[in-house]
Simulated assay, not measured.
Amino acid sequence: MEKSHNFCSTMNILGVNVHYEVYEKKTPKPTLVLIHGFLSSSFCYRKIIPLLENDFNIIAIDLPPFGKTEKSTKFIHSYKNMAKVVIELIEGLQIKRAYLVGHSMGGQVSLIAAKERPDLFERVVLLCSSGYMKRLSPSLKIGSYVPYFYLVIKHWLVKQGIVKNLHNVVHDLSLIDQEMMDGYEEPFYDDRIFMALNKMIRDHEGDLSPEDIKLIEQPSLLIWGNEDKVVPIQIGERLNKDLPNSSFFSFKNTGHLVPEERPEQVSEKILDFCLAN
């Protein structure tokens, strides 16, 4: 089997040091770009990367302010800016064409990137993608300007706890082990993330409108968990209707974290979709 050349690096984009991981072979292969969701990181793809790295060169990105990417209060944490980070990183790596895979919030970022650059991203895979969310309430945005409001965010997240949060996103609770808990909890040991999340409340502009979604013509594959409590399956079905060139598949007894719960099946679907003629 061909040996992988794997490494981590950072690239300064829009004033932020963006962390990314590369899994590549020496021979030319299609490029797969993995985008994680809210309060997550490229860690969420750890189970599917080994299943896909023989067929793709893979780039997994930590969006600001998550994972190992710099936590900045100067960065504008809008989805449009996050999509710009993805676009500029891929261009900076001199990649001409790629496939996007986005989970949850990362699906919305992927849709924006695909809409902005159809020449760069030729296929899109949405894993329980967020969709049709409105702007945050004005009262919450006003609250974000209150001094030390980031401590309120921290208190709320700490009070929820990693186990409770994982129970909300995983249907098969037997999958929750120490590795999973540590991986999702680690980024929140840094207080700067709560300051950046406070800024993110101000910058959130809402999801793409149905009119914008209908303009995205690239082939898209939507994969959902029937038991998703975070982004209900009805959102996926609506996206499937609005995206002009999409197909939809759902797994029974599966929650929001489909890359964690169904890595083999998700990888197989991605392979079949992205490598189809």
Rank of each mutant, 00 (worst) to 15 (best):
L221A: 02
P187C: 07
H5R: 15
S209C: 12
R262M: 12
V146S: 09
F251G: 03
L215W: 08
Q94I: 12
K25Q: 14
V85Q: 06
Y23P: 01
R135G: 05
P244V: 08
G161P: 03
L271V: 07
K154V: 09
K96Q: 11
I87L: 02
I61F: 01
K3C: 13
G143F: 13
Y184P: 04
D228G: 08
I142N: 15
S104G: 11
K241H: 13
N168G: 14
L100F: 00
E70S: 05
D203I: 02
Y184V: 08
V231Q: 03
L157W: 14
H103T: 03
H167P: 09
F273L: 05
L93H: 06
F273G: 00
F56M: 04
T69E: 05
K164N: 15
D177M: 01
G15M: 08
S72K: 12
A196V: 04
K68E: 15
V22L: 12
P118R: 04
V124S: 00
A113Q: 01
P210G: 11
H204C: 10
E91I: 07
R97T: 12
D190E: 10
K71F: 07
G37H: 01
L63V: 10
E261S: 08
M133Q: 14
V258T: 11
G67V: 01
E122R: 03
G37Q: 03
G161E: 09
D62Y: 09
N277L: 10
V85R: 05
D272A: 14
